[in-house]
Simulated scan of single mutants.
Amino acid sequence: MMPVKALLSVHNFHESAALMFQDIVDCIKQRGLRRGFKSILGPEGGYFLDAKRSEHFHMYIFEDEKKIRFIYSLIKTHSGLLDQGKGKTKHYLSVCRNLEVDPEFPLLLVYGVFITTNGAGQRFNTDDRVKREWVRNSICLDVPDNSVFQYKPAKFCWNKSLDIGLGSSNSWYLDRASIKLRSLVCLQPDKTGSSSNAKIAVENSDGNDCIQHTSGCGITDEGGSHENGILNSSDINDIVEDLFNM
């Protein structure tokens, strides 16, 4: 029965990760009702598995106070985006090395504000494919190896404001964004930004939910628990607050 328990644990992890992202979106919308905002794309994504691909992601873009804000959860990277023969892996793999995460299962959350200039803003506003591409590009995913970034941190790290973008006014690819990166699992980075102490939630194979699902904007007296290594309700509230303040 052990293989069944392991499969159930993985299933629960993916299911609960989706529920957690929906909690984040619900919290954003609840706060947005008090501020005035509009959804631009999504929420969209999910866990996809077939003969041609496997991936798990969620993304949501909205406008608030004339700023285009987004949040992106990447649990499992699309296998096609890791094909080195397509020449679009170098920058993403560099980010993963900086963060000390697995490129195929990065288990990360990125959120921030898109900064558009000139023709880039027009293309972003009129083409949902460009919106999705910019979200992926915020962690250098699907960016051509020969791209030259006008905005790029010397090192990607957790929980710090970073500028990223190619700065090309007519490009399909990301113009510019201010972002922050969080792990979806409980990380205790050291002072150098190392994430070597990550506690991976999918190791839990007892058949119980690997992620504590929250509801109602995650507002609880207890604030949740990191026992299973996943972001809790207090984390969600902090992330949403941070996103609105960027």
Rank of each mutant, 00 (worst) to 15 (best):
residue 1 M to G: 15
residue 5 K to M: 11
residue 6 A to C: 12
residue 10 V to G: 14
residue 20 M to Q: 14
residue 20 M to F: 11
residue 23 D to N: 13
residue 27 C to Q: 06
residue 28 I to P: 01
residue 33 L to R: 10
residue 36 G to Y: 14
residue 37 F to R: 09
residue 37 F to M: 05
residue 41 L to K: 07
residue 43 P to F: 11
residue 43 P to E: 12
residue 44 E to K: 14
residue 45 G to K: 15
residue 47 Y to I: 12
residue 51 A to L: 10
residue 63 E to V: 01
residue 65 E to V: 07
residue 71 I to W: 12
residue 73 S to G: 02
residue 82 L to H: 01
residue 85 G to V: 09
residue 86 K to M: 06
residue 96 C to E: 01
residue 98 N to G: 01
residue 100 E to V: 02
residue 106 P to H: 04
residue 108 L to C: 02
residue 118 N to F: 06
residue 120 A to E: 01
residue 124 F to G: 01
residue 127 D to Y: 12
residue 129 R to H: 14
residue 129 R to Y: 10
residue 130 V to K: 04
residue 131 K to Q: 07
residue 135 V to H: 12
residue 138 S to L: 02
residue 141 L to N: 06
residue 142 D to T: 08
residue 143 V to P: 01
residue 149 F to T: 06
residue 154 A to P: 04
residue 156 F to R: 11
residue 165 G to I: 06
residue 167 G to V: 05
residue 171 S to I: 03
residue 171 S to W: 09
residue 173 Y to F: 12
residue 179 I to V: 05
residue 179 I to T: 07
residue 184 L to G: 02
residue 184 L to K: 08
residue 188 Q to P: 05
residue 193 G to D: 01
residue 194 S to Q: 13
residue 195 S to C: 11
residue 199 K to Q: 10
residue 199 K to L: 03
residue 210 C to Q: 09
residue 213 H to K: 15
residue 214 T to V: 06
residue 214 T to M: 00
residue 218 G to K: 02
residue 218 G to W: 07
residue 221 D to Y: 11
residue 224 G to I: 04
residue 224 G to Q: 00
residue 226 H to I: 02
residue 226 H to T: 08
residue 228 N to H: 11
residue 229 G to P: 00
residue 232 N to Y: 15
residue 240 V to H: 08
residue 243 L to E: 07
residue 244 F to V: 07
residue 246 M to L: 09
residue 246 M to F: 15
